[in-house]
Amino acid sequence: MLTFEEWLVPHKEASCLVTVGTNALRGEGILPDDIVIMERGRTPQHDDVVIAEVDGHPLIRKYEKVAGLPRLASDTGVMPLAEESDVRILGVVASVIRRYR
């Protein structure tokens, strides 16, 4: 039997909690104050939700690859990932959790 925790947090050692503070992925169904489970050390694939560090600020975005070129997308726009830009993918989001009470 799979426990609820194993299901939400499939790779426990590599996972950490991240609190969301933005509406940038509202279209994805991710809202401010949601908790997401981030997995470190995973190579992002097209359409993954990722936590990225851009100029020292952690952001939550969709990772997309269009014509082989990676970019970070939100509801409002896209940011191409140029090779020289100061962007680090911290991890890939495995699940979103929202408690109402």
Binding site: C16, L17, V18, T19, G21, M38, L59
Partner: peptide
């Protein structure tokens, strides 16, 4: 508390 480390900043 949940026994999972937390990234200590809200992501934007």
């Amino acid at each position: 508390r949940l026994p999972i480390p937390m990234l200590q900043s809200r992501v934007c």
